[in-house]
C-alpha cells in the first residue's frame, strides 16, 4: 500500500498549492470572460494548457486581436522555462519513477508543482507522490477557472482587481522559505531579480513577447552564475 500512502501524502502537500490556485484561476476565468472569450474555450484552455502565466498572456493578446500564430509562439517562449524545470526534476527522480509514468507526470509540472516537488526531501519523491501533487493542483486550476468564468463577473469590480496579486503572492510564498534557509539561494535570487529588472527597465520594452524572453534569459543567466560561483551542491535542495 506504499502507492496509496505516497499518493495521499502528495494530495496533502499539493493542497496548499490547490488552495492558492483557486483565486488565481478564478481571476483567470473572470478576466477571460470580461474580454469576451467564450467560457468553454477558457475552461478548455485550462484543461489542455495548464500553465497559468501563459494563459493570462494569451487572453490578453487575444483581446488585442493578435494573430493566433503569434500567441502560440509567445506561449512557447513563456513556457520554455518548463524545459529547465522538467530537466531539473528528471535528474532528481532518476531511478525512482518508471519511464511509462513520465509523460503523465510531465504534463502536471507547473511553476508551483515544480517548486513544491523539487523542494521536498529527495526520499519522499515517488510516482504516486508527484501524481498526487499534480492531480490536486490540476483539479483546483480547472475548478477555479469554471468558477471564474461563470460567476466571477458577479464579484464587485474592486475585488476582481485585487485578485491580480494572487499569482505573485503564491510565488512569494513558495520562494521565501528557501531564501531564509540558504544564503546561496538568497544571493542567486537577488541576482535574478536584478537581471530581470535590468531587462525590464534597461531595455526599451517590446510589448508582451519580451516577457517570455525576460524570464528565460534571467533564469539561465542567474543559474549559470550560481553554478559558477558556488561550487558545492545547494544544501537546502537535497
Amino acid at each position: 500500500m506504499e502507492f496509496r500512502k505516497d499518493f495521499l501524502s502528495g494530495l496533502k502537500k499539493g493542497s496548499s498549492i490547490a488552495l492558492g490556485y483557486l483565486p488565481i484561476a478564478i481571476t483567470f476565468g473572470l478576466i477571460a470572460n470580461s474580454k469576451g472569450v467564450p467560457n468553454q474555450i477558457s475552461i478548455l484552455m485550462s484543461l489542455l494548457v495548464f500553465a497559468g502565466a501563459s494563459q493570462f498572456i494569451a487572453i490578453n493578446l487575444l483581446s488585442l486581436s493578435t494573430a493566433y500564430w503569434q500567441i502560440v509562439v509567445t506561449t512557447f517562449i513563456v513556457n520554455l522555462r518548463h524545459l529547465l524545470m522538467t530537466a531539473s526534476i528528471a535528474q532528481k527522480i532518476k531511478n525512482k519513477v518508471p519511464k511509462k509514468w513520465l509523460p503523465l507526470l510531465a504534463f502536471g509540472i507547473t511553476d508551483e508543482t515544480f517548486s513544491l516537488i523539487s523542494l521536498s526531501p529527495k526520499t519522499s519523491l515517488s510516482t504516486a507522490f508527484i501524481l498526487g501533487v499534480n492531480i490536486i493542483a490540476y483539479t483546483a486550476w480547472i475548478t477555479g477557472t469554471a468558477i471564474g468564468v461563470y460567476i466571477g463577473s458577479s464579484l464587485p469590480k474592486i475585488i476582481q482587481a485585487s485578485m491580480g496579486i494572487a499569482l505573485y503572492a503564491m510565488f512569494i510564498g513558495l520562494l521565501l522559505p528557501s531564501l531564509k534557509e540558504s544564503r546561496q539561494v538568497l544571493i542567486i535570487s537577488a541576482l535574478a531579480i536584478a537581471i530581470s529588472s535590468l531587462l525590464y527597465w534597461g531595455t526599451s520594452s517590446l510589448a508582451t513577447i519580451s516577457q517570455g524572453w525576460q524570464i528565460i534569459i534571467t533564469t539561465v543567466l542567474a543559474s549559470t552564475i550560481g553554478a559558477l560561483i558556488f561550487t558545492e551542491e545547494v544544501s537546502s535542495n537535497e
Binding site: M85, S178, A192, I215, T219, A222, V234, N237
Partner: peptide, 24 residues
C-alpha cells in the same frame, strides 16, 4: 547539476519581479 538546482529559485524570481508591480 548545480545549474539545474538553481532553476527553481531563479525562475520564481524572474516570474515575480517586476511583473508583480503591475498586477493590481
Amino acid at each position: 547539476k548545480r545549474f539545474l538546482s538553481f532553476i527553481p529559485y531563479t525562475a520564481l524570481s524572474a516570474l515575480l519581479f517586476p511583473e508583480i508591480l503591475f498586477s493590481t
